[in-house]
Simulated scan of single mutants.
Amino acid sequence: MKQLTYIIVFLFFSCAGSKKVAKEITKPTPVPAAQVKIDTVSTTPSKTIKDTDEQPIETAIKTEKFDQVLTKRILDEHELWNDLLQKYVSKDGNVNYKELKKERKDFYGYLHVLNLMYQHESFKTRSKEQKLAFWINAYNAFTVDLILRNYPLKSIKDLKDPWKQRHWKLGDKWYNLDEIEHQILRKMNEPRIHFAINCASFSCPKLQNKAFTASNLETQLTNATKEFLNDPTKNNLSKNSIKISKLFQWFAKDFKQNGSLIDFLNQYSETKISNKAKKKFKDYNWNLNE
């Protein structure tokens, strides 16, 4: 599946006639020595593609139907990331960094695909849901990359300015995690993103083991919010007293867009909370999520 996806990406951008993207595939922009180079990821198939039952793939890629399906797969489904999450992230959100680090070729292949997606001519006109899914997946993948660069370690807080390290290039710009979270995701006025992005720590909302997609985004965001809020290791809720994650303190403004914090919590809580409930915030555990 992964090899086929790389092949499809290669063929799609080659046949689209985009000289800029084709050049990016064959010779990615050099990166600093400290960064694992994306050009270690091969976009050239290691095995010959067999013709389909209906027609040779060289003919199929020219059809409108194939182009529509391919565009959706590349820009919406994030298949490579989904495969990696399924393999290396448990249902509880624990990440097997040790094993993932051994097989980084596929992982860096996905980072390269993110760059291709970002540069695609349709990216700027994509829907809010498509852009949210893209940036949530990008944030999570970049966070995993940050850990892999420095693994083994006990906590992301062991690193100097972890959220300000500018390692990841999309198009002509180098990004850091702070910028993606505060200048892009939070400005999209969707407070539930805080339960979708992961900071590689125990007290964070867990890293989901499925990629976010535009078609399932509403359900995924709602489920992630409910799951985090009703997890007794993250929040303790009762009618008259709540002890909640510091996320609700750090990003209080985001949760008060359409009412009070209690109003927001009651949308997703299994316990009905009184507007007069006493409120405290839990200590944050920054131990690595493995």
Rank of each mutant, 00 (worst) to 15 (best):
F123A: 10
K124W: 02
L146C: 04
K164W: 04
K173M: 13
K173T: 13
K164F: 07
N140H: 00
K164I: 00
K124N: 12
K101Y: 06
W168F: 12
N150K: 09
E181Q: 13
E129V: 02
L116N: 07
R166G: 13
G171S: 11
E129G: 10
I156S: 00
Q119C: 09
E103H: 14
F142K: 00
N176M: 05
K105G: 02
H120R: 09
N115S: 13
L148W: 02
Y175N: 10
W174T: 15
K131D: 05
Q165L: 06
L116R: 10
H112M: 12
N150M: 04
M117G: 08
G109N: 11
H167V: 03
F142Y: 03
P152A: 06
S127M: 05
R166A: 15
G109P: 00
Q130Y: 01
F123N: 03
K157N: 09
K101F: 07
A138Q: 01
E179G: 13
D106Y: 03
D178I: 05
Q165T: 01
Q130E: 14
G109R: 12
L114A: 13
L132I: 04
D178R: 04
E129A: 14
S155E: 06
F134V: 08
E129Y: 03
R149C: 05
A138P: 06
F123G: 05
Y110S: 12
N140W: 00
L177D: 13
R104A: 02
V144M: 07
D178E: 14
Y118W: 12
P162V: 12
Y108K: 13
R126T: 00
Q119E: 11
V144A: 04
A141Q: 03
R149F: 11
P152V: 03
Y108H: 15
K124M: 06
K169M: 11
E179Q: 15
K164P: 04
Q130P: 02
A133D: 07
W135A: 11
K128D: 08
I136T: 03
F107L: 12
H120N: 13
G109W: 14
K128Y: 03
L177H: 08
V144C: 04
E103D: 12
H112I: 01
R166I: 12
F142I: 00
K164S: 14
Q165P: 08
K157I: 00
S155Q: 05
E179W: 09
L114K: 01
Y118A: 10
G171C: 12
D145K: 01
D178S: 14
L114M: 15
S155L: 05
K131I: 02
T143L: 03
A138H: 00
M117R: 15
N140F: 01
S127H: 01
K124P: 09
N137L: 02
F142E: 05
H167L: 11
D145C: 06
G171W: 04
P162C: 01
N137P: 05
L146I: 06
T125A: 07
H112R: 12
I156Q: 02
T125C: 02
A141T: 01
F134M: 05
D161H: 11
Y108R: 15
L146E: 07
I156R: 03
Y175K: 08
W135C: 10
M117L: 14
F134G: 06
K128A: 07
E129K: 10
I136A: 10
E129R: 06
K124S: 12
F142R: 00
Y118S: 08
D161Q: 14
D106M: 03
P162Q: 04
G171R: 07
D161L: 09
A141M: 05
Q119R: 10
D158L: 07
D178G: 09
H182G: 14
Y108G: 07
E181T: 08
I147L: 02
